[in-house]
């Protein structure tokens, strides 16, 4: 029962990722694309944590943590770059 619900949750998250990727590809401006990437990275943190749960490995959470740090920096760097102007 619990496994089925987990599978459904993973499928839902996957659909959300697909929609985010569509926005990433279609996004008319750079800001739209970066916003899509921001959303995708947070979703990826959830997915990594879910994988840690499925695999039963505590240390995979380290990966989620570091991924959070680096993706935040990436979005901040691009935002600052856009702000600086062309």
């Amino acid at each position: 029962m619990a496994e089925t619900i987990l599978l459904a949750a993973a499928a839902l998250i996957f659909l959300g990722v697909v929609l985010g990727v569509l926005r990433l590809v279609l996004g008319p401006t750079a800001v739209d694309r970066v916003a899509a990437i921001d959303m995708l990275t947070i979703t990826s943190i959830s997915l990594i944590a879910l994988y840690a749960l499925v695999a039963g490995r505590f240390i995979y959470l380290d990966v989620a943590l570091v991924y959070g740090v680096l993706s935040f920096l990436a979005v901040l760097a691009v935002a600052r770059y856009l702000e600086r102007g062309p």
Binding site: V69, L70, L73, L76, A77, R80
Partner: peptide, 8 residues
């Protein structure tokens, strides 16, 4: 990346 955050 700490330094990168400071620079940004």
């Amino acid at each position: 990346s700490c330094i990168l955050l400071l620079v940004l």
